[in-house]
């Protein structure tokens, strides 16, 4: 396994501490005038999502974590388990509801997403940053109102709730940013 020296430290690095996988979400170079160079990091546990503050002195190193992302198709939910499929090997890894977390609200059958493996075991998934989804229900808005600064809640087909402009109607397609659960724009029907 690769090991990273403090000079390689940067945001986005995946490292292993006491056998647990972490993502470096912040790394700052700190050096008191006459003191030693320090790297102040924030490390997020890739499974538990807890954040650790660690400071390393220049020259120390961390072991890289064997973390791999694979594009997979979401197949179905089986009770507490979410079943995915690797379209090339047909492997079907499952994630627990806890591992899927809040992002479950973006899942629909057949969705292509990223599944993260640590030491060969699936630990997390991420939906695409942008998704086009149908509005399942939203209060009817005033006709002709094209203002975008007034919003209302809309429930999309996967069950997630998104704030949309007042002119969006039930049954329309919208493009959303899954990272912020926010509305981007009205989407057109594809291939119809």
């Amino acid at each position: 396994m690769v090991s990273y020296n403090t000079s390689d430290f940067r945001k986005g690095l995946k490292v292993q501490i006491d056998g647990e996988p972490f993502l470096m979400v912040e790394c700052n170079f700190v050096k008191p005038g006459k003191g030693q160079a320090l790297y102040k990091t924030k490390l997020k546990h890739l499974i538990k999502n807890t954040v650790l503050d660690r400071t390393y002195k220049s020259g120390e190193s961390l072991e890289g974590a064997d973390v791999e992302d694979t594009e997979m198709q979401f197949l179905y939910q089986d009770g507490e388990n979410y079943v995915f499929m690797d379209p090339t090997t047909f492997d079907q890894p499952t994630l627990t509801a806890e591992q899927v977390g809040d992002d479950a609200k973006w899942l629909k059958d057949g969705l292509m997403c990223m599944v993260t493996f640590y030491n060969g075991n699936p630990i997390a998934f991420a939906p695409p940053n942008h998704l086009v989804l149908r509005v399942e229900y939203t209060e009817p808005g005033a006709r002709g109102n094209t203002a975008t600064n007034v919003t209302k809640p809309a429930t999309v087909e996967t069950g997630a709730e998104v704030q949309v402009p007042i002119f969006i109607e039930t049954g329309e397609l919208i493009k959303v940013d899954t990272r912020t659960s926010s509305y981007i724009e009205r989407a057109r029907e594809d291939k119809k």
Partner: peptide, 27 residues
Amino acid sequence: MSLSQPDSSPTDLSRGRSSAPGSDRES
């Protein structure tokens, strides 16, 4: 060496999405 400049896109990383844009080696 990373620049460690103020984080301009905290949302990319706040969810541990290891595949998020910008997380690959920024060479």
